[in-house]
Amino acid sequence: MAGTGTDHRNLSKASVYEDVKDYYGNILKKSSDLNTNACVTPTKPIPAYVRKALGDVHPDVSSRYYGCGLVVPECLEGCRLLDLGCGTGRDCYMLSQLVGEKGHVTGIDMTDYQLEVARKYVDYHMQKFGYKKPNVNFVHGYIETLEQAGLEEGYYDIIISNCVVNLSPDKASVLKEAYRVLKEGGELYFSDIYSSARVSEELRAHKVLWGECLSGALWWEDLMQLAADVGFSPPRLVTASPVTVGNKELEKLLGDYKFVSATYRLFKLPKSSDKGRSLVVYDGNITGCEDKLEFDVQYTFKANEVMEVDGEVAHILRSSRFAGELTFQPEGKTTSGVCCAKPKVVSMNPFELAEQQENATQKPATGGCCGAQKSCCN
């Protein structure tokens, strides 16, 4: 990936893996052991049904959670979902309740200690959820080499990741492998830390800053190029929150670098010549999103209201699991006199969005929402 500065060529991949394994397997034993606020940065208030699902996760699993956002895409019932860098499985067990007994969640991680904790509580959670057989499994492997871990091409409806991609020394391979194992129309929905500029080689070599999700962070504009190179649709920004380091010594080392926690959604789309603008009506039938579906910072679909979408978003919606929840009309074909909502005019720069949200007097009520009853995946 010449020119993007994202492969960290001056760092040995093996040494990065060993450092991260040591940091998350030996140095960190619980969330309170973190040296900065980066890996526990909140995004938006958590919806009640998601809080309930999180509350059903065993305390030993939750206490070892290290994440920077809420990764709960909408319409999950019956889906096959993969969690990259699952750790002790908090998000896997939360999402296993939302995909339901007919869905399935796979977690992959390279840290033996974390996987040992995750596997220990499979039976506990299945009994608590009332499932006859497990709908969760955990795989040891690297997120850059999913094929070596035995993960099948074109198998998953959705891939999530929570503050893990920044820990990888080879982010291009992470995106390539994610693209490979997704179904056509599938989605990579992930939260991660991003930097305001490319981080220097000197800071990348700092083990604590890397382990705390900061010095391995992508410059946010490099994500756009990586996604295009791999074949994903242009990333759609969902949320962004400023990261406060909270450690004076490390803040001094970081100097002028700034960081945000941002959630993006990327889609693996079929080739299509039909990418014209469209009018879209959301039916309001996704559980948890009955009044509105917040797709990204630009598009919020209110139930039974006509919304104009550009060709790129129309192609995403027609090709993805959301297609069954929407009615499409060619632009200009709406009923005379019916109001057609326009998308927001917003910046896709996560730093600008984070600043806007930080300065806002009222924050939006929810982050992602997800269906626990209505099936969107086949």
Rank of each mutant, 00 (worst) to 15 (best):
residue 131 Y to N: 06
residue 61 V to C: 02
residue 270 P to I: 04
residue 137 N to F: 07
residue 173 S to P: 03
residue 70 L to K: 01
residue 247 N to E: 13
residue 30 K to R: 11
residue 178 A to C: 02
residue 251 E to S: 08
residue 341 A to F: 14
residue 277 R to V: 13
residue 54 L to E: 14
residue 256 D to H: 07
residue 340 C to I: 15
residue 9 R to F: 15
residue 126 M to C: 07
residue 352 E to W: 12
residue 63 S to Y: 13
residue 303 A to C: 09
residue 135 N to P: 02
residue 204 R to L: 12
residue 226 L to K: 00
residue 34 L to M: 14
residue 111 T to S: 05
residue 219 W to P: 02
residue 64 R to A: 09
residue 262 A to K: 00
residue 262 A to H: 02
residue 123 D to P: 07
residue 252 K to C: 05
residue 50 V to G: 05
residue 276 G to A: 09
residue 124 Y to L: 06
residue 312 E to R: 05
residue 314 A to T: 01
residue 14 A to S: 15
residue 112 D to E: 14
residue 144 E to I: 00
residue 288 G to F: 07
residue 288 G to A: 06
residue 149 A to F: 08
residue 218 L to S: 01
residue 63 S to Q: 14
residue 182 L to N: 00
residue 335 T to N: 11
residue 147 E to G: 08
residue 234 P to M: 06
residue 347 S to K: 01
residue 253 L to D: 11
residue 114 Q to V: 08
residue 41 T to F: 07
residue 130 G to F: 07
residue 60 D to L: 10
residue 162 N to W: 09
residue 94 M to T: 15
residue 287 T to L: 08
residue 105 V to Q: 04
residue 253 L to H: 10
residue 131 Y to G: 03
residue 125 H to Q: 02
residue 364 P to K: 05
residue 342 K to V: 15
residue 303 A to S: 14
residue 163 C to N: 05
residue 200 S to T: 06
residue 264 Y to C: 01
residue 341 A to Y: 15
residue 346 V to M: 09
residue 90 R to N: 10
residue 210 W to S: 04
residue 18 E to M: 08
residue 181 V to T: 02
residue 289 C to W: 12
residue 11 L to E: 06
residue 114 Q to I: 06
residue 77 E to D: 13
residue 340 C to L: 15
residue 299 Y to N: 11
residue 112 D to I: 05
residue 224 M to H: 13
residue 153 E to F: 11
residue 60 D to F: 12
residue 65 Y to V: 09
residue 272 S to Q: 08
residue 262 A to R: 00
residue 83 D to A: 00
residue 6 T to C: 11
residue 201 E to A: 06
residue 119 R to N: 09
residue 318 R to L: 05
residue 371 G to R: 03
residue 301 F to G: 08
residue 194 Y to P: 04
residue 61 V to A: 04
residue 325 E to S: 11
residue 67 G to Q: 02
residue 99 V to Q: 05
residue 283 D to Q: 10
residue 228 A to S: 15
residue 106 T to E: 03
residue 132 K to S: 11
residue 271 K to C: 12
residue 161 S to K: 00
residue 226 L to M: 02
residue 262 A to G: 01
residue 204 R to G: 10
residue 177 E to G: 03
residue 105 V to P: 11
residue 125 H to I: 04
residue 2 A to C: 08
residue 104 H to Y: 13
residue 155 Y to I: 02
residue 344 K to G: 12
residue 112 D to W: 08
residue 217 A to G: 07
residue 21 K to N: 10
residue 151 L to A: 01
residue 342 K to G: 14
residue 37 N to V: 08
residue 10 N to M: 07
residue 267 F to P: 04
residue 327 T to A: 12
residue 230 V to M: 00
residue 179 Y to G: 00
residue 212 E to L: 05
residue 131 Y to Q: 05
residue 198 R to D: 10
residue 330 P to N: 11
